[in-house]
């Protein structure tokens, strides 16, 4: 193989064809609230950890739906389970249970 000093650049595009619906259904069965997020961002706005380390439940849900579960887990790694997000969620999502469910389902490889 020849080294030209440059090569193919990986695509950063979301590929929804890679979405694992089986695993997602597993999560939705455990915590159906994952389906009703409107991506309003209230949870992230009040997140204790998010001001210091990248932490966002809104983004984690988005990442799961966009076939990037590893990124979702990273987004929740520093969560302190303080529960502030559950207070502000307009749709009353059980955020603590959702966070724990995401970690459970997607940590299993």
């Amino acid at each position: 193989m020849v080294d030209f000093g440059f090569g193919l650049v990986p695509s950063s595009r979301i590929n929804l064809d890679l979405f694992d619906s089986e695993k997602y259904e597993q999560l939705a069965e455990m915590e159906p609230d994952v389906r009703i997020c409107m991506a309003c961002g209230s949870c992230t706005a009040v997140c204790t950890a998010g001001k210091f380390v990248p932490t966002s439940l809104r983004e984690a849900i988005e990442d799961i739906k966009n076939a990037k579960p590893d990124k979702a887990l990273q987004m929740l790694e520093s969560c302190q389970l303080c529960g502030k997000c559950s207070m502000v969620c307009p749709r009353g999502i059980n955020t603590r249970h959702l966070i724990l469910s995401i970690s459970k389902v997607y940590s299993e490889k």
């Binding site: 979301i14 590929n15 929804l16 983004e59 988005e62 966009n66």
Partner: peptide, 12 residues
């Protein structure tokens, strides 16, 4: 584009 994720997106 998934404008919430700020990333272009494709789907079949």
């Amino acid at each position: 584009e998934d404008t919430v994720a700020s990333k272009p997106l494709k789907i079949t």
